[in-house]
């Protein structure tokens, strides 16, 4: 539901990440990491970003989303595992003393900008 707000945050960060000396650039790709336990639906986010980025340097840019598995560790027996269903009890010793290692990411890793055109391409 809040993907538009998140898309606008992404757009702000993307625009701020374009080096000041690069005028009139077009962002081709925005590389994101999204944890599987974040409240973001990738398809909705892509749609919202497309709308938000219209008429900006990121218009038409692809949002490339790497989904990050939920990983957890048991503080009692030190077992580490990938959480496939929302159960955070240790599968090895059934302890509830566990912590999440990943799965809550919502990060912009990088942006990719098209290389500049050579000066005289038009014939």
């Amino acid at each position: 539901m809040h993907e538009m707000g998140i898309a606008m945050e992404i757009l702000d960060i993307v625009q701020a990440s374009i080096p000041a000396d690069m005028a009139d650039v077009r962002v081709q790709r925005v590389n994101l990491k999204v944890g599987r336990l974040s409240a973001v639906i990738p398809d909705s986010l892509r749609f919202c970003f497309g709308v938000a980025a219209d008429k900006t340097a990121a218009a038409g840019a692809a949002l490339v989303i790497e989904e990050i598995d939920v990983a957890a560790r048991c503080n009692d027996c030190h077992h580490e595992w990938t959480v496939e269903t929302p159960v955070f009890l240790c599968p090895a010793c059934n302890s509830g003393n566990t912590e999440m290692l990943s799965g809550r990411e919502l990060e912009i890793v990088s942006i990719e900008i098209a290389e500049e055109e050579p000066p005289h391409v038009d014939l």
Partner: peptide, 12 residues
């Protein structure tokens, strides 16, 4: 070609 610029920032 394209030029990749590292950002590494939390969206929120």
């Amino acid at each position: 070609g394209s030029r990749e610029i590292k950002v590494v920032r939390r969206v929120l």
